[in-house]
Amino acid sequence: MRKWKQYIALLVVVLTFGLLFGCSGANESKAPANKEATKTEQSQAAFPVTVKDGLGEEVTIKSEPKKIVSLIPSNTEIAYALGLGDKIVGVSDFDNYPEDVKKKEKIGGMDFNIEKIISLKPDLVLAHASGAHNSKDGLKQLKDAGITVLVVNDAKSFADVYHSIELIGKATGTAGKAQEIINNMKTKLEEIKEKAKQIKPEEQMKVWVEVSPPPQIYTAGKGTFIDEMIQAISAKNVAGGLEGWPMVTEEKAVAYKPDVIVTTYGGAKQVLERAAWKDVPAVKNKRVYDVNTDLVSRPGPRLVEGVEELAKVIYPEIFK
């Protein structure tokens, strides 16, 4: 999971797709069928569509995808949120949400199984722009097999995630739903920020986020979702001056003297038991908490839930 956390990032902006609901003087019993027919016609009209992927390459999707393989959990979550769950035929070994993914064929972990993917006969593969997921040889083999591959680039901010949702929405004929998801995320995030404005500068908590324990302690610095989330709730990320997901010595972590410590791997108990940390304010006051790593590091629709979870543990008196 540590490797996974370090591959944090994904894309997003917004493209609207108008849904027309044709209504004639037909009776009520025929209305549902008419709506379904209209949706089908609209979906067909949306194709072929050309989008620019995470590598800056233009990808043309000739017709509505019927079978989709996702190589990374965040893309899978976006696809499900767009209502494409029934079309997903393969997911990575790391996929765990929603529950339905457990029924899907597994296509490997960091190194995906090319033969397995080809055997599933997908007409669209949702790939990723970093790490082994962007294995040039692997993706080329998929393309040579006649499979359309859409590379979704790394998301390092909420804006990037919005772009990812928009991109996948346009590529699958669900741009209208994508816009709806983005709008809901933006609304919820603004509501949280508005609530956090009541926190005065001198009352802002200093937060240390630990994504892996000693001997190699990693934290979340600038350019990560966690840093953006902490800022959104009017708190201070003590490692905010560092970039990405840096490794920090135990001495430096202790020197930060955080008011609150958050772990993303279930390590709150062990942090409280560290002798060298006994004088850290967060430890002395027993303000050490575990949060769901997927919610705070997986660039998908549930990121706002991650903001809410952080807000509740850092400012429980405000975010109840």
Rank of each mutant, 00 (worst) to 15 (best):
M110H: 11
M110G: 08
D111E: 14
D111Q: 15
D111A: 13
F112M: 05
F112I: 08
N113T: 12
N113D: 15
E115I: 09
E115F: 10
E115G: 09
K116N: 12
I118W: 01
S119Y: 13
S119V: 12
L120W: 14
D123P: 06
D123N: 13
L124Q: 04
A127K: 02
A127S: 11
A127W: 06
S130I: 14
S130K: 10
G131T: 10
A132D: 15
A132C: 06
A132G: 06
H133K: 14
N134R: 09
N134Y: 12
N134L: 14
N134C: 06
S135Y: 04
S135N: 15
K136P: 05
K136N: 07
D137P: 04
G138D: 06
L139K: 00
K140G: 05
Q141N: 10
Q141H: 11
K143Y: 05
K143M: 11
D144I: 05
A145I: 01
A145Q: 00
A145C: 07
G146R: 00
I147K: 01
I147R: 03
V149H: 04
V149G: 01
L150V: 10
L150E: 04
V151R: 02
V151H: 00
V151A: 03
V151Y: 00
V152D: 00
V152Y: 02
N153F: 07
D154Q: 14
K156W: 08
S157C: 09
S157L: 10
A159K: 07
Y162K: 00
Y162N: 12
S164A: 15
I165H: 01
